[in-house]
Design a protein around this nucleic acid. Structure first.
Lengths: 247, 247
DNA sequence: TCATTTTTCGTCAAAATCATTCACAAAATC
DNA sequence: GATTTTGTGAATGATTTTGACGAAAAATGA
């Protein structure tokens, strides 16, 4: 196994589990103790993990994901909040709403007031937030992904089949005329695509920075959803289905 | 288990329960009394917890006496831990395991080591714990109940239909010969019942205090599952399918 | 009070982990 | 083709951690 490969495996194990022992790594990597130790030393020197007696722990001992989410939230927050606020105002009594996992939609939830709508989501955190507001919430079934705390995979897609939503709210990492809406994760993209198909009205929440960007996987065409953004870039002015909101 | 890992576990237990005994920690951490004491000393020196006779309490200046009382009362978790430990040891490679929501099963998860089994649960916290261990986890779909953070209701039952588990682990509030296994919540009982039907082997985790108690709703007969307990009460001695575990 | 139980502390040997060295093989360089 | 470089695995001895045991101290109960 290549050195770089091993580094990757070690770091990804740390990412998901938070800690590993030397012995565990010997088995996972099928290498000797010496090699594992050398790897850990290198990665420690490079500051990519923290070596401790017996193994290594992830460089961020405290609630990794929370911090990341916090950080991400602080970027473009103002615009995202405005977008979220407007999106939330679209939810009416008796709506059957799908809320996609992601930070954009998360910010939207802070403005949700409609308790007489029913909500479905694939994000555990969204479910908790909505349930905390006193709303009726359903989580779709399927594989639970640790890093994003969202439900993804084949099973999730089957779960979505039975629903017919009146409105759906989505996030996207990239939006172009040619590739439509894109996101970096394959499994998540599949879920998004299926969910969009099940919605009468789709809304994509995206600040201006997303326009012109392309991520790995497309999950819908530009015409499939109404984009809610803070500022429509020049190239997209003539596109229908874009709503610009400010303050 | 890594030293830092142990520190993390100790602190997180303190975070959630407020106090722990040395004996509990010996079981949770699977290390000797000496090690636990050393750990507590270190963490106390670092000011991360307050050591008290018999264990440790969370670092909060006030209401020390109350906490110490609480510490005494919580001693019965010892038995629950033993039960959980045994139950976890039943999970083997390639098992397809259902884990019911609840505190008994939660304690069991601390002993789960089998990463090559697939787990399905209706409890969000269980899913997170298992995913954190690096296991493959599925959440069933359905209504998300805020108070218990579990998935319940009609939809959850339908979700369960497609599964055929090799083993299932359940909690119960009451066990009698006549009424079988009982629980106070209607919606949760329905889910339990359906899940039990889908398991080849069912295990009910219950300490001795549950025998003779009756809650509102039955979700299974005594013969439907193997009971794992710390002490079989007199009246149940001749019942088959009870496993008594100690230490 | 005094005896009994529980908890704590200290010591020590065993086990685990670590850094270092050396030998070997594959790849890169000359 | 001979060499250097690089990566790997094994062996060694030093160091740290661990678990067990026994004695001391504190709590408990009669």
């Amino acid at each position: 196994m290549l050195t770089e490969e091993r580094f990757g495996v070690i770091l990804s194990i740390l990412e998901s589990r938070g800690s590993v022992t030397v012995t565990e790594l010997m088995k996972e990597l099928r290498s000797s103790e010496s090699t594992v130790r050398r790897d850990l030393n290198t990665l420690d020197e490079e500051g990519l993990l923290t070596k401790v007696r017996g193994g290594a722990i992830s460089k961020r001992p405290f609630s990794t994901r929370d911090d990341e989410v916090k950080l991400r939230r602080e970027r473009n927050t103002d615009e995202k909040l405005t977008i979220g606020k407007y999106a939330a105002s679209l939810i009416k009594k008796n709506d059957f709403v799908y809320v996609d996992a992601g930070t954009s939609t998360d910010l939207m939830l802070d403005y949700v007031t409609e308790r007489e709508a029913v909500y479905v989501t694939n994000a555990v955190s969204h479910a908790m937030k909505l349930a905390g507001l006193g709303c009726t919430v359903f989580l779709i079934g399927g594989e639970f992904k640790h890093t994003t705390e969202a439900i993804v995979g084949e099973e999730a897609i089957v779960s979505l089949e039975k629903y017919n939503f009146t409105k759906g709210f989505f996030g996207a990492n990239g939006i172009t005329k040619k590739n439509g809406f894109t996101t970096p994760e394959v499994k998540e993209a599949m879920v998004k695509r299926k969910a969009m198909e099940s919605c009468k009205c789709c809304y994509v929440l995206a600040d201006e920075s997303k326009f012109g960007e392309i991520s790995a996987i497309s999950f819908g065409d530009l015409e499939d959803a109404t984009i809610i953004t803070n500022k429509i870039p020049k190239g997209f002015l003539q596109v229908k289905n874009i709503k610009e909101v400010d303050e």
